[in-house]
Design a protein around this nucleic acid. Structure first.
Length: 156
DNA sequence: GCCAACGTTGGC
DNA sequence: GCCAACGTTGGC
């Protein structure tokens, strides 16, 4: 299957792009508990897919950099852990419900691409993350939109 | 901090 | 299986 593009959202409180880059290792992107997003993870994400890393719930929400999916999707262990807030009593090891991927940080943009800039760019019309009321923590990104965002960041 | 929007839950 | 109520997301 061809390489795909995604946008992963994370709240500012739990997202430090510099820290990610410094670490330089794949990080688990866990705790997705939305069925639509689960289906994208489980059925469509592949190692090598590229990801826009987006910071939400801040004064200036923005894409801060890019990453790459580092391994096949796998069951989120928290669903089996009764002590976890993400525990799901309906999930079993044989039939997991929730999936996750690891993301390797690839590059921090020198110039983040803000939500305001993205909304102002007609080339990004229809981008899922820009839709009103969008609450998916992960969304697919069209190849043309990917190129546009990278160009806006001054990257190639 | 507010509140619109939306996914999920649960009573019926 | 519907749908109102609830809880959460996330821009502003």
């Amino acid at each position: 299957m061809a390489k795909r593009y995604w946008l992963f959202k994370r709240e500012a409180d739990h997202f430090d792009m510099d820290q990610l880059m410094k670490k330089g290792k794949p990080v688990p992107w866990k705790n997705v508990r939305n069925f639509t997003v689960r289906n994208w993870i489980r059925d469509e994400m592949k190692p090598g897919d590229r990801v826009l890393l987006y910071q939400s719930r801040t004064d200036d929400p923005a894409v801060l950099g890019i990453g790459e999916i580092a391994r096949e999707p796998y069951p989120d262990p928290a669903q089996f852990d009764p002590k976890s807030p993400y525990y799901d009593p309906k999930a079993t090891k044989e039939k997991p419900i929730w999936y996750m991927v690891d993301v390797e940080p690839v590059k921090a943009f020198k110039k983040p691409v803000t939500l305001a800039e993205m909304r102002a760019n007609p080339a990004l019309d229809g981008m899922m993350v820009l839709r009103k009321g969008n609450r998916f923590s992960m969304t697919p990104v069209e190849p043309e939109h990917w190129k546009t965002v990278l160009a806006m960041a001054g990257e190639r």
